[in-house]
Simulated assay, not measured.
Amino acid sequence: MTLTQQILWGSIYLGICFLIEIILLTWCTQVVRVASLRLENSKRFVSIAAPICIALFFIVAIHTFQVWLWAVVWVFGDVLPDWNSALYFSLVTFTTLGYGDIVLGEPLRIFGAFASVTGLLAFGLSTAFMVALMTQVFKEELMS
Protein backbone atom coordinates (compact mmCIF):
# COMPACT_ATOMS: atom_id res chain seq x y z
CA MET A 1 0.00 0.00 0.00
CA THR A 2 1.19 3.49 -0.72
CA LEU A 3 1.31 6.06 2.08
CA THR A 4 -1.83 7.73 0.74
CA GLN A 5 -3.68 4.40 0.61
CA GLN A 6 -2.59 3.54 4.16
CA ILE A 7 -3.87 6.87 5.45
CA LEU A 8 -7.10 6.57 3.47
CA TRP A 9 -7.88 2.97 4.52
CA GLY A 10 -6.71 3.56 8.08
CA SER A 11 -9.02 6.56 8.32
CA ILE A 12 -11.92 4.54 6.90
CA TYR A 13 -11.49 1.72 9.44
CA LEU A 14 -11.02 4.25 12.23
CA GLY A 15 -14.25 5.94 11.14
CA ILE A 16 -16.12 2.64 10.99
CA CYS A 17 -14.94 1.77 14.51
CA PHE A 18 -16.09 5.12 15.85
CA LEU A 19 -19.42 4.93 14.11
CA ILE A 20 -19.94 1.53 15.73
CA GLU A 21 -18.83 2.87 19.12
CA ILE A 22 -21.12 5.91 18.93
CA ILE A 23 -24.12 3.82 17.91
CA LEU A 24 -23.56 1.24 20.66
CA LEU A 25 -22.84 3.83 23.36
CA THR A 26 -26.04 5.62 22.36
CA TRP A 27 -27.91 2.32 22.66
CA CYS A 28 -26.20 1.73 26.01
CA THR A 29 -27.42 5.13 27.23
CA GLN A 30 -30.99 4.20 26.33
CA VAL A 31 -30.72 0.79 28.01
CA VAL A 32 -29.24 2.36 31.16
CA ARG A 33 -32.01 4.99 31.23
CA VAL A 34 -34.75 2.34 30.97
CA ALA A 35 -33.06 0.10 33.57
CA SER A 36 -32.63 3.03 35.95
CA LEU A 37 -36.32 3.90 35.70
CA ARG A 38 -37.31 0.28 36.35
CA LEU A 39 -34.93 0.05 39.32
CA GLU A 40 -35.93 3.39 40.80
CA ASN A 41 -37.59 1.76 43.81
CA SER A 42 -34.95 -0.94 44.25
CA LYS A 43 -32.32 -1.08 46.93
CA ARG A 44 -29.68 1.61 46.65
CA PHE A 45 -26.92 -0.91 45.84
CA VAL A 46 -28.86 -2.33 42.90
CA SER A 47 -29.84 1.08 41.53
CA ILE A 48 -26.16 2.11 41.52
CA ALA A 49 -24.60 -1.20 40.43
CA ALA A 50 -26.99 -2.00 37.57
CA PRO A 51 -26.14 1.00 35.35
CA ILE A 52 -22.43 0.43 35.93
CA CYS A 53 -22.70 -3.26 35.03
CA ILE A 54 -24.74 -2.52 31.91
CA ALA A 55 -22.28 0.13 30.75
CA LEU A 56 -19.26 -2.08 31.39
CA PHE A 57 -20.90 -4.92 29.45
CA PHE A 58 -21.49 -2.61 26.48
CA ILE A 59 -17.96 -1.17 26.61
CA VAL A 60 -16.31 -4.59 26.72
CA ALA A 61 -18.53 -5.74 23.84
CA ILE A 62 -17.73 -2.60 21.81
CA HIS A 63 -13.98 -2.97 22.27
CA THR A 64 -14.11 -6.70 21.56
CA PHE A 65 -16.02 -6.05 18.35
CA GLN A 66 -13.46 -3.47 17.25
CA VAL A 67 -10.56 -5.85 17.95
CA TRP A 68 -12.32 -8.50 15.86
CA LEU A 69 -12.92 -5.98 13.08
CA TRP A 70 -9.19 -5.25 12.87
CA ALA A 71 -8.43 -8.99 13.01
CA VAL A 72 -10.72 -9.50 10.01
CA VAL A 73 -8.64 -6.90 8.15
CA TRP A 74 -5.40 -8.74 8.96
CA VAL A 75 -6.74 -12.17 7.96
CA PHE A 76 -8.73 -11.28 4.84
CA GLY A 77 -6.03 -8.87 3.72
CA ASP A 78 -3.55 -11.77 3.83
CA VAL A 79 -1.40 -9.78 6.24
CA LEU A 80 -1.30 -12.41 9.00
CA PRO A 81 -1.52 -16.16 8.47
CA ASP A 82 -4.22 -17.20 10.95
CA TRP A 83 -6.93 -16.00 13.32
CA ASN A 84 -4.80 -16.59 16.40
CA SER A 85 -2.05 -14.28 15.13
CA ALA A 86 -4.56 -11.76 13.80
CA LEU A 87 -6.53 -11.53 17.07
CA TYR A 88 -3.35 -11.38 19.13
CA PHE A 89 -1.83 -8.65 16.96
CA SER A 90 -5.13 -6.77 16.84
CA LEU A 91 -5.56 -6.85 20.62
CA VAL A 92 -1.95 -5.94 21.38
CA THR A 93 -2.08 -3.10 18.86
CA PHE A 94 -5.56 -1.87 19.88
CA THR A 95 -4.48 -1.61 23.51
CA THR A 96 -1.30 0.18 22.35
CA LEU A 97 0.75 -2.39 24.23
CA GLY A 98 2.69 -3.38 21.13
CA TYR A 99 4.92 -6.27 22.21
CA GLY A 100 6.72 -6.19 18.87
CA ASP A 101 6.84 -9.96 18.36
CA ILE A 102 4.58 -9.55 15.31
CA VAL A 103 5.53 -6.61 13.13
CA LEU A 104 3.94 -5.44 9.90
CA GLY A 105 6.05 -4.86 6.84
CA GLU A 106 6.87 -1.33 5.76
CA PRO A 107 3.98 -1.09 3.25
CA LEU A 108 1.47 -1.49 6.14
CA ARG A 109 3.11 0.24 9.11
CA ILE A 110 1.08 3.45 8.91
CA PHE A 111 -2.13 1.50 8.31
CA GLY A 112 -1.35 -0.69 11.34
CA ALA A 113 -0.76 2.38 13.46
CA PHE A 114 -4.38 3.36 12.83
CA ALA A 115 -5.40 0.30 14.87
CA SER A 116 -3.46 1.79 17.80
CA VAL A 117 -5.04 5.20 17.29
CA THR A 118 -8.45 3.53 17.16
CA GLY A 119 -7.84 1.78 20.48
CA LEU A 120 -6.40 4.87 22.14
CA LEU A 121 -9.36 7.01 21.14
CA ALA A 122 -11.88 4.25 21.91
CA PHE A 123 -10.56 3.83 25.44
CA GLY A 124 -10.67 7.60 25.91
CA LEU A 125 -14.26 7.81 24.70
CA SER A 126 -15.30 4.85 26.85
CA THR A 127 -13.63 6.39 29.90
CA ALA A 128 -15.38 9.71 29.31
CA PHE A 129 -18.67 7.85 28.89
CA MET A 130 -18.20 5.99 32.19
CA VAL A 131 -17.28 9.21 34.03
CA ALA A 132 -20.40 10.94 32.66
CA LEU A 133 -22.55 7.92 33.56
CA MET A 134 -21.13 7.67 37.07
CA THR A 135 -21.61 11.40 37.61
CA GLN A 136 -25.25 11.10 36.58
CA VAL A 137 -25.88 7.95 38.64
CA PHE A 138 -24.38 9.47 41.79
CA LYS A 139 -26.16 12.78 41.22
CA GLU A 140 -29.48 10.95 41.00
CA GLU A 141 -28.68 8.86 44.08
CA LEU A 142 -27.74 11.92 46.12
CA MET A 143 -30.95 13.67 45.14
CA SER A 144 -33.16 10.74 46.11
Rank of each mutant, 00 (worst) to 15 (best):
G119A: 10
F65A: 15
F76R: 13
T118K: 01
C53V: 15
F129R: 10
C53N: 10
A55H: 07
H63Y: 08
I102E: 05
A86T: 07
R109L: 12
G77D: 03
T95F: 04
L80Q: 06
Y88K: 02
D101P: 02
R109N: 07
V103E: 09
T127L: 14
A115G: 09
I62A: 02
M130S: 13
L133P: 07
V75F: 04
T95C: 02
G112Q: 03
C53G: 15
F57M: 13
T127R: 08
G119C: 01
T93Y: 00
P51F: 12
P51R: 14
T93D: 01
Y88V: 04
V92T: 15
V92F: 08
F57A: 15
G105T: 11
I59D: 08
A128F: 12
G100E: 06
V117P: 00
D82I: 09
T93V: 07
L108N: 11
V79L: 09
T64S: 14
L120C: 02
H63K: 10
A132E: 12
G77L: 09
V75W: 00
P107C: 07
V72Q: 13
A61P: 01
L121M: 14
F114I: 05
F65G: 14
F114V: 06
V117F: 04
F111G: 01
T64I: 05
V92C: 04
V117A: 08
L97E: 00
A113R: 10
T135V: 13
V75R: 15
L121Y: 07
A86H: 02
I52E: 05
L69V: 04
T93P: 03
I102A: 04
F76K: 14
L108F: 12
V131A: 15
F129G: 07
F58G: 08
V73I: 14
F76A: 08
V79F: 04
L56P: 00
A128T: 10
L80H: 03
L108R: 12
V103Q: 13
V73S: 02
L91Q: 06
S85P: 00
N84C: 01
T95I: 08
A71E: 08
A86F: 09
S126N: 13
F57P: 00
L121K: 05
L133F: 08
P81T: 13
F89S: 07
L108T: 06
T64F: 03
P81E: 15
V67M: 04
V67I: 15
N84Y: 09
I110K: 02
G98P: 00
S126I: 05
D82C: 09
G124D: 00
L104F: 07
A86G: 03
G100K: 07
A132M: 14
L69P: 00
L104Y: 01
Q66S: 11
T135H: 14
F65V: 13
G124H: 06
F89A: 10
D101K: 09
T95D: 03
E106A: 15
Q66A: 09
V131L: 15
W70S: 04
